[in-house]
Every structure is written in structure tokens, then in C-alpha cells.
Design a protein around this nucleic acid. Sequence first.
DNA 1: GTACGTGCAAAGACTTTGCAATGGC
DNA 2: GCCATTGCAAAGTCTTTGCACGTAC
Lengths: 320, 320
Amino acid sequence: MPGRKLEAEKELFYEYLRQNGLKKTRQKDLILDTFLGNEGHMSVEDIYALVKKRDRKVGIVTVFRTLKSLNACGIAREINLGDGLTRFEHCYQHPVHHHIICTKCLRVIEFLSPELERVQQGVVSRYRFQPLHQRIQIYGLCEDCRENRAAPTGPQPDTEKIFARDALRMAIAMQRQGCEFYRSAASCNQDPAGREVFESIALEEESHALQLEMELEMMHRYEKGLEEAPVFLHFDSCELQQLIPNLPSDLGDSELRLDARRALEIALQLEKRAAGFFKDYAERFGETEGKRIFERCAEQQMKHFASINRRAEAIAPASA
Amino acid sequence: MPGRKLEAEKELFYEYLRQNGLKKTRQKDLILDTFLGNEGHMSVEDIYALVKKRDRKVGIVTVFRTLKSLNACGIAREINLGDGLTRFEHCYQHPVHHHIICTKCLRVIEFLSPELERVQQGVVSRYRFQPLHQRIQIYGLCEDCRENRAAPTGPQPDTEKIFARDALRMAIAMQRQGCEFYRSAASCNQDPAGREVFESIALEEESHALQLEMELEMMHRYEKGLEEAPVFLHFDSCELQQLIPNLPSDLGDSELRLDARRALEIALQLEKRAAGFFKDYAERFGETEGKRIFERCAEQQMKHFASINRRAEAIAPASA
DNA sequence: GTACGTGCAAAGACTTTGCAATGGC
DNA sequence: GCCATTGCAAAGTCTTTGCACGTAC
């Protein structure tokens, strides 16, 4: 599985070479391999040192030139972490992100925050500015350095994996929240048929949540250290909360009475919103595993929507 | 008035020199003057070119060294706008801010967004990271470049002035909102004494708003181009809206009936919140004119609070 | 008079370019 | 065989350092 991605990256590079009339060489291959085999934010010198270990005859100029190519074809991204060196990070199927940099141990935390993006979008739009790329870097001291502890040095899972994990976590949170909503709606509902509807949908949500949790479990098993890796995608649980429909509370809370049809309508509302929400999220990201998870969730919600809709139509055929 | 700030900056530099056993020289003075006399984000070369016009014998090394000193004593701030040059911007009594950079015309828009700050703070705190400084830069195309217009070249007012303007604008918006609230509360209120209270407070707010507006007017008159300068401080009017108390709406909206005492209590609530709000804002910024405006507003709101409080006590002496 | 300041030149750090030999295709 | 590639050296860019002379205090 991880090998497949490596292959895809190499193929992408070769394709780039072909399309530009460039040639495949031992050195380029070696540099690509070295770059792909190392996570983190490496300077030219870093990569040169690693390459030299494998072939002492490679020149640093070739490393410069090859990294420029890797940058051009979307495998590497040139970044500047404020130390005057050009550094390169993995770019292929990695979401664009921001950096938190410890000025003491030089550890870099990558993160993404749709809320930050939203606020920023609001700002630039006031100037009618068209943003093309951005640089958000926060410098300071990490917890370990502040407390004079050694930073953990184990191999870090790569950002795409962490992003996928966080996407799954978000999907699970959504599913769990839906589940809880249907359960509480069922328990409040005095109408037996409506209650039954909520209960059955809660079960469906539960089963989907379990499925996602299992998937997350598998992911953790395959990827060492993934579970402990710091959060990458910051999502706001309030955002999820807002998708939950309000139960009609004109009556006292305990006197809720929704028949099957009304219950199904409410469920349709939630499923539709959730689908839209995930679709929206999926669209924010370039081709990544996380994006695919969001897409899948949106699809699944739409399917659930459709199945609930069929049920609603069976009760009372739709008008129009 | 602007001369006074210049003097303060020079004095700050001389003080720095004295405290570090360094010497005051013709060259340092010339470089400081040149830096202070030019807004914008100048590279060493830029400043060197300007300095050379006044004294051909000055060396670029001296410019490098002097700018390092200016950076060290808080008059200049070293920034990196992604073009590989170290640039310097005014720092003394200028709020820290972010940059939007047009990659075509190289124009730089400075901005500040407390909301962005808030989101960012939320992110770093999840990593228990202690942020010390940050770099937020958005690259893209400005409106003028997208539409192939020439960028306006008039002299830009400096950021501190624009910040002060925006602080005033915010204070005015707050005052206007309060005014509107008291007016509408008065018109809804069926209790004559309560209505009179709201009306009189509305007048006080109005007078304060007018005072601030006059101040803004003066500011515009003294500073060419200030009125048209793009927004620097992005504040969210919802944030202001949230300070407005909800009128008790247990009854129908038109049946509001608040006696003088209740009306005064509601006014106290608003004034207190507003004072807290401005105090909070003032605390976010270093020594700048904008900060002082926020502080003054907080004070004024506290005074208003006290005066309303006296009125409330006159009606019914406070318990405890 | 002492010690920092200055400006020149030189060095340093990072990156790019020129060029002759090499090696894909 | 053509032409991109490579690795060396050299150059380029931005910045800092070394040093002898100058000058502020």
C-alpha cells in the first residue's frame, strides 16, 4: 500500500521528464528516492548529505537541479522556514498546510484549520485580492523545550496519513453526533411510529459509526505512531453541532410528538446537511486520502438520505 | 504632532546607543532619518540608495549595521517577504500585523484580524505551544493588477494612523449600535419612566458618537489619504452586536414594559460589557495610538457606567 | 586617549550559471 | 548521434567579518 504511492510519485516524475524532453538518470532517481524516503523539511544540504552516503560522486548542483524539477512537477514543495535555507517538503497528495516551528529544537508541527482559512478568506475578499498561495508560520517554543524534555524522536507518520486519520475522526464524530441526536429524539418522542423511525435510524448511524471506527482502528494498526501523532486538521465540533436539526420545541420538551412522516422528514434534513457538509469539506482539499474519506462520507450520507427518502415515500407518496 | 513621534524614535535610538556604549554618528543619524522618512518595506539596498543621495561616502555595510541596531531597539522590524531580501518596516508604535503581497506589483497590504488571532491561538494551545512571533503572508494578485490598472501611487499614510482610524471607526460603530439599541428600547417600552431613561441614555450615546465622529473627521483632515486607505483592523460587527443585551421578550415584543430601575439595569449591563470589550481590545496591542483610543473608550464607558449607576442608586439605594 | 565606528575589501553562505565531458534514448 | 545531464569551477547575490584608519565621548 505505501509502496503504491511511492510508485505513483516516481511515475509522476518520469512523466514530467518525458513531457519536458528530459532524461531519466541514476542521479535523479537516487535523489528522488532519498527525498521520498525521508519525511520532514529537508534542506538541499540535508538531502545532499544523504545522497552522498549512497553515491559519493553526486554533486550538490544536481541535487539543486533535481529538487527544482520535483518542485515543478508537484512532488516536492519549496518552503522557507525563516532560517534562510530553502527547504523541501512532500507535496504529492499532501494537503497544503501551515507550520508551527519550535525555534529551539526546530521541530515543525503541521496543521490545517478550515476556520482559519475562512477568516482569512474574509479578510482578503475585503481587498478584492486574489490569493494564490500563503505562508502561515508560528514561531515559538514547543512544550518539550519549555520543560527541558527531549523531543520524541520516533518515526513520524507522514502528514497525509495523519490527515486521513483526522478526516476519519471527524466523520466518526459526525456519525456519533447524529446517532446521539436520533436516540434522544426517539426517547423524547411520544409517537410510537415516529419513535420507531428514530430508533431504527439511530441504529443505522451507529452501524456506520462502528464501521468508520473499525476503519480507524485498522489505520492505527497499519501505521505505527499514528494514533499518538498530534492533531493536523483542526475542526470545530460546534460546526458539527450546527448540522443537527432543532426539534420543534413549541411544546414542552417532554411532550414531543412526531409521527413517522415528520420523523423521517427531520432525518432527511440532517442527512442532507451532513452530506453537504462533507462535500464542502472534500472540495477544500487537493487529491489526498483525507479528501477521499470526506467524499466517501458525503456519498454515504446521500445514500442514507435516499434510503430514508424511499421510506418516507412508502408512507405517503411524494407530492411533485 | 508627527514631529513629536519622530523625535521620540530618535531619542529611543540614542538611548539605545547610550545604554550599549555605542556612539552617535553622522552616518547613523542619516540612516535613521532616511528610514523614518520612508514608509513601506524597504530592503537594505533601497535604504542604501536613498542614503547615498544625501552622502555618497556612506558604505552599505554601515547601513546593514545600523539597521540591525534599529531592529534591536524596536524602531525597525526585520521582515522577509519571500523575495530573499531582508526588508525593514517601521515598528515603533506600529501594531504587529500581517501582510498581503501582490506578486505582480509588489504592493503590500497590511492587516490585522483579532478573529484570525483568536483562531490561531486556539490552534497553538492544542499543542501547548508557546507562540513568540509569527508570519502570516498571503501572496496573490491585487485588484488593480488583475484588471491591468496602474496601482495608486500617492503617499500612503502610515500604518499607525490607519490603525488609529480603524480603532475610532470601531468605537463609533459601537457607540452607534448602543445608540440604536437605546432608541429602539425606548420606543418599545410602554413604561414612561423607563422610556425616559432609555431616551436620555440614547442622547448621551449619541453625543459621544458625535464626539468620536468629529475626532475621526479631524484625523482625516490632518492626514491626507487617510479616509481612503484600505482597512487595516478587521473587526467583526457581530462581535459588537453580541454586546447588546437582549430585551426580556417573554411578552410580545410590542408589550415591553420596563420601569426606570430595570431600564437602568439594562443600560448598566451594556455599558459594562462595552467597557470590558474595549479594555480587552486595548490589551491586545502594544503602545500605539489605536491602543490609546481603545483605552480611552473603555474609560469613557466606565464613566458612563458610573453615571448611570449613580442614577440607579438615586432611584433605589443599592443593596450591599 | 580609548574604544567604538567607518568603509574598504574580503570572506561566507546559499544558489545559479558556464562548460566540457558523459551518457540516455 | 543528438542533446540533456553531470560535476566541476566559477560567478552571483545577499550578508557578515577583518582591518586600518577615523572620530565621538
